[in-house]
Computed example of a mutant assay.
Amino acid sequence: MASDPEDILKTIAAMLEAGLETEVEPFPETDKEFADILIKLRQLDPNDLKGKLVIGGFVDHPYGPEQQRCMECMYYLVHRKWCDLPELAVPVEPEWWCRLWRI
């Protein structure tokens, strides 16, 4: 995996734009369901970008009836355009979303 966040962001954007199928459902409704997804992510090689995107359920647009997006997620670092959830730790665009979204 490239080490420059801008290059990684471009790679992610290209993968999502190309139609990468990710696990957007089921959305974790409980702490246990959320933790189960984190366990799957921890089992990946930290450089497995595709695996992170698939298990995390990333999409390159707002999602759900409330049109949730990374911008409003507690893990989003605005000035870095970065998901700070340790199991993901990837650059993201503010309009994207993943199923580990939290307020």
Rank of each mutant, 00 (worst) to 15 (best):
P28V: 01
L20S: 06
L53K: 02
V78D: 14
P91E: 02
P94H: 04
V90L: 15
A14C: 05
V92I: 10
C73N: 07
M71Q: 12
G19N: 09
A14Q: 08
P5D: 04
E29D: 14
K10F: 10
R69E: 13
E33P: 11
E21Q: 14
L100H: 02
A89D: 15
E66M: 11
F58N: 04
E66L: 10
T30L: 04
L88V: 15
H79L: 14
P86S: 14
L53F: 03
C70W: 00
R80H: 14
P46G: 13
M71S: 11
E17S: 15
E17H: 11
N47D: 14
E21F: 04
D4M: 12
G64E: 03
C73V: 04
I55V: 11
Y63P: 02
L100P: 06
M71I: 10
V59W: 02
C83L: 11
K10G: 10
R102F: 08
E95P: 00
G51D: 05
M1Q: 14
I55E: 06
E87K: 11
E23V: 05
P94L: 01
D31E: 15
G56S: 11
V78S: 12
L49V: 12
P91Q: 00
Y76V: 05
R42V: 03
P62C: 08
W97M: 03
F34G: 00
F34H: 10
A35S: 15
P26R: 05
P62V: 01
K81V: 00
L9W: 02
V78R: 15
D60P: 04
E17R: 10
L38C: 13
P5R: 01
C98G: 05
E29T: 08
D84G: 09
N47I: 02
P94I: 08
C98E: 07
Q43S: 15
L77A: 15
E17F: 06
C70L: 00
R99L: 07
S3W: 13
L77W: 12
E95C: 06
